[in-house]
Nucleic acid binder design. Structure first.
Length: 259
DNA sequence: ATGGTCGTGTGACGA
């Protein structure tokens, strides 16, 4: 079963990119972030035999899950802050597998309300996942975490030291999730430095391979045992008018009956 | 040395 996460930076602008990716790569599940619209083009994906569920808002944020199989929506908001209306979270069940797709807050500029919100949001996420771990509920969480885990996940750590994506408290928030017993899927088989998922549009970052790794999958322990591969597919970042992110692709062993 | 990129939506602002 192939599960992919991709921040597309506007689903309308990237519609043809996503359709091409579905045709060429045929994932079972595709998690999308930064839709930037409240009108999700579900029919375009139905035409390619993909079901979808989206949580959108005008101009900002937005997440969606596409699937070859039926989707049962569990939640469309991250609990813990009633006044938070930002579209950053969707949790579903597909073939009895629990899947969570997030677009975590960026947090810049620092310091400020945006950074406080980022840390509060990560605490809320920790609370939700802690309950699942405590109850032995298996799950995959993927998406744009907007956190650089380690120095080797960026080109020039000094350039990032005061950024919301790399500050100690941000990295600590990700580490706290791992300390629940979750695994950074990409790091199971690949310990190399400079394996990036995002390259800024500015200053020739893509051409210079000046990127960061901020798109992740975390797996609960039993699913980590089922993991076959987790790779970064750099190809779509090189297409015409690309997103600034590229897909991360996770493959889980099947149980023999279900994908 | 400086400005340098997108997307939304038509203003700045977010990333």
């Amino acid at each position: 079963m192939k599960i992919v996460t991709w921040n597309v930076n506007s689903i309308n602008t990237r519609l043809e990119h996503v359709k091409r990716y579905l045709r060429e790569s045929g994932p079972d599940v595709l998690m999308l972030q930064e839709l930037k619209t409240e009108n999700f083009p579900a029919q375009d994906f139905e035409n390619l035999a993909y079901h979808s569920r989206a949580v959108g808002q005008k101009a900002y944020n937005g997440v969606a899950i596409l699937s070859k199989h039926d989707i049962n929506v569990i939640a469309q908001r991250l609990p813990g802050e009633d006044s938070d209306e930002q579209a950053r979270y969707i949790e579903v069940e597909i073939n009895n597998l629990r899947l969570i797709n997030i677009y975590a807050p960026n947090g810049n500029p620092v310091p400020g309300e945006k950074y406080d919100y980022k840390l509060r949001w990560m605490k809320r996420l920790t609370q939700r996942l802690r309950d699942y771990v405590a109850n032995d509920q298996s799950f995959v969480i993927g998406g744009d975490f907007n956190i650089i885990p380690e120095e080797k996940d960026c080109c020039d750590p000094k350039a990032w030291k005061d950024d919301a994506l790399f500050l100690p408290n941000s990295r600590k928030a990700l580490r706290t999730l791992e300390n629940l017993g979750l695994y950074d899927a990409f790091r199971i088989f690949d310990t190399r430095a400079r394996q990036f998922t995002f390259w800024d549009y500015q200053a020739g970052a893509w051409q210079k391979d000046n990127g960061i790794r901020i798109d992740h999958f975390l797996l609960s322990p039993a699913l980590t045992d089922r993991m076959e591969s987790c790779v970064i597919n750099r190809d779509p970042r090189g297409w015409e008018k690309p997103s600034d992110h590229t897909p991360v692709e996770l493959t889980l062993q099947t149980d023999g009956k279900k994908p």
